[in-house]
Amino acid sequence: MASKALLQEIYYSMLKVRRVEERLLDVFAEGAIPGFIHVSIGQEAVASGVCACLTPRDTIFTTHRGHGHTVAKGIDLKPFMAEIYGRADGSCGGRSGSMHVASKEAGVAGANGIVGAGMPISLGTAFASMFRGDDDVTVCFFGDGATNEGTFHESLNLAALWNLPVVFVCENNGWAQFTAQSTYMKIKQISDRAASYGMPGITVDGTDVLAVHKEADRAVKRARAGKGPTLLECNTQRWFGHYAGDPQKYRAEGEVEKAREIDPIARLETHLLAKKQANQAFFDATDERIRAEIDAAIAFAEGSPKADPSDILMDVYA
């Protein structure tokens, strides 16, 4: 059972992910952010529940929908925001943008614009731990759609074969861009595939952060103990479109509204109140603290200069 302190920490993490992305939607709509962004609002329990099991030394890989994982892993919001704004003080110097944010310091080895591409790379950080004999763990986040890439098959087979300290977290929001899971996959439960690789496959309610945390904790401990990988499927809901501004015409009437009735943050609040582990004052104070952090991060991003064009060739090579 998670302690009160841990649950409060998870609450802070989830609300931070939510508020960061709400704010990103706002500033994106105002035209402050170049390119496009994908938000994970409604899916916070996965990012926060899993990352609560990790140490700063552990590494995560994420996707185009990666703000949540990256924030939950503990990236400093200032360079995070500056990166999404494309500024020189961004964590990647303005080279990556929303779809590729990375932070060595926070153990985020990168979001990825190529669906399914993080899985093979996650094998490598895990292998490095095995090679060196340290007990760091790697977590690779990906969507339901990514599980039909060949890299999923190659990576899970190899991870199981070599007992690599990696946890594969499939964030199943039922949608791959504009296509529903039922239209591109015969099976319903993606974790069923794990058996064919010889690793445990677990499906949890990904809107219940306690359930996510419990199973993630087990999987991470298993990996840390050298017992090999796990495929953890977290069923969740995408409240917004594939990208910011997507009108979601392809979704059935009422579907989005129904999805929004299940708010993972409200669920945790209800739990905390019932268990007397937090009160409304705590929620309000947490929200205020987060908003101040985000304000500071936005100000930092806005105050940071655009990357210098004379640096265009920098870091192509050493």
Binding site: P120, L123, G124, S129, T151
Partner: peptide
């Protein structure tokens, strides 16, 4: 390794990022 070129290549990359020289 298994016959999995993408996994091999990605694995090498991840390990290189962590300081190995594959």
């Amino acid at each position: 390794t298994p016959i999995s070129e993408a996994a091999i290549m990605g694995l090498a990359l991840g390990s290189a990022v962590k300081g190995l020289r594959p």
